[in-house]
């Protein structure tokens, strides 16, 4: 990785033999006319498990939308598997944040199946191969027992497993997961990260997972992508989550405290550069 003083030019320190899964060159992204990320360049190798961290509004969702081809970049170019990003890329699986449940009376199986080639015109008739694909996706997330239960009767963690199964239907090579840990209790958080990690390893998927708290991801993620003040910093936890690197990124004094095997990012004197929830770890685990 390049010097932490130039966080916009974040590159991996040890590029593996693996081909690049996601690459951005001088990308500037805006949302509602406001520049959210400016001139970001980065390269993520195939099979890498990346935690995307940063405050609310730091650009996590905007970055995901751009990689999905939903919002064009103001400037720069983005590639996934060597091809320019485009909407509806089969190789990209996207799991949005959980929101209000629609169709809670459907069984888990029906819910997952609704995403099977859901972009094709016609009737929701799945055929033998389609049904087998739905069964396989459910099995991949250990959700066979949820298949016949109405979704409204499931817990948040169980519903999330169904969402994950839906993203696996197209056999993606890149997974973009938007805050999958939000609204889960701490035990479920770790379980979820472990499940996704195991799946990603088995299928050699590249995973970008946004999160508010770094701790559930520690030890499992290969890289951190830290977004702040329009910049991005990509590297290993040891490279990025340091007082020096984050202070440079935020442009304000930030302390990284390690205690009890956990990491806490705290702003000195409650500096305004840092959003409150960046410190979520301190509150939750203090």
């Amino acid at each position: 990785m390049q010097s932490a003083a130039e966080p916009a030019q974040a590159h991996l320190s040890k590029p593996r033999a693996a081909p690049e899964s996601i690459s951005l060159q001088d990308v500037t992204l805006a949302r509602g006319g406001r520049v959210v990320l400016s001139q970001i360049s980065l390269a993520i190798p195939q099979g890498s498990f990346v935690g995307v961290l940063g405050a609310n509004g730091a650009g996590k969702t905007t970055l995901f939308h751009a990689l999905l081809g939903l919002e064009p970049a103001v400037q720069g170019s983005m590639q996934i598997n060597g091809q320019p990003v485009r909407r509806g890329h089969r190789a990209v699986g996207y799991m949005p944040q959980m929101r209000k449940l629609i169709g809670g009376q459907f069984t888990g199986w029906s819910m997952v199946a609704s995403a099977l080639h859901g972009q094709r015109w016609g009737l929701p008739w799945y055929g033998r191969a389609g049904r087998a694909a739905v069964d396989a996706a459910l099995a991949a997330v250990d959700a066979q027992d949820l298949a016949q239960r109405p979704v409204a009767a499931l817990s948040g963690g169980e519903r999330q497993r169904l969402l994950l199964a839906q993203t696996l239907l197209d056999d993606p090579s890149v997974l973009l997961l938007d805050e999958p840990l939000a609204s889960l209790d701490p035990a479920r958080m770790r379980e979820t990260v472990e499940r996704i990690h195991t799946l990603a390893r088995a299928r050699n998927m590249t995973v970008l997972m946004s999160a508010h708290d770094i701790n559930p991801l520690l030890g499992l993620m290969d890289h951190v992508l830290y977004l702040a003040r329009g910049k991005a910093l990509l590297g290993t936890v040891d490279e990025v989550i340091t007082t020096k690197a984050l202070t440079a990124l935020y442009g304000a004094p930030v302390d990284v405290v390690r205690a009890g095997g956990r990491v806490f990012v705290v702003a000195e004197g409650g500096g305004s550069a840092l959003q409150e929830h960046d410190c979520g770890g301190c509150v939750a685990h203090a």
């Binding site: 999905l68 939903l70 909407r87 509806g88 990209v92 996207y94 799991m95 949005p96 629609i102 169709g103 459907f106 819910m111 609704s114 995403a115 859901g118 972009q119 929701p124 969402l163 839906q166 993203t167 197209d170």
Partner: peptide, 13 residues
């Protein structure tokens, strides 16, 4: 059906 149950996911697809 897809757009009704999972609008964000459907849009991305």
């Amino acid at each position: 059906l897809f757009a009704t149950l999972q609008p964000e996911m459907a849009e991305a697809k």
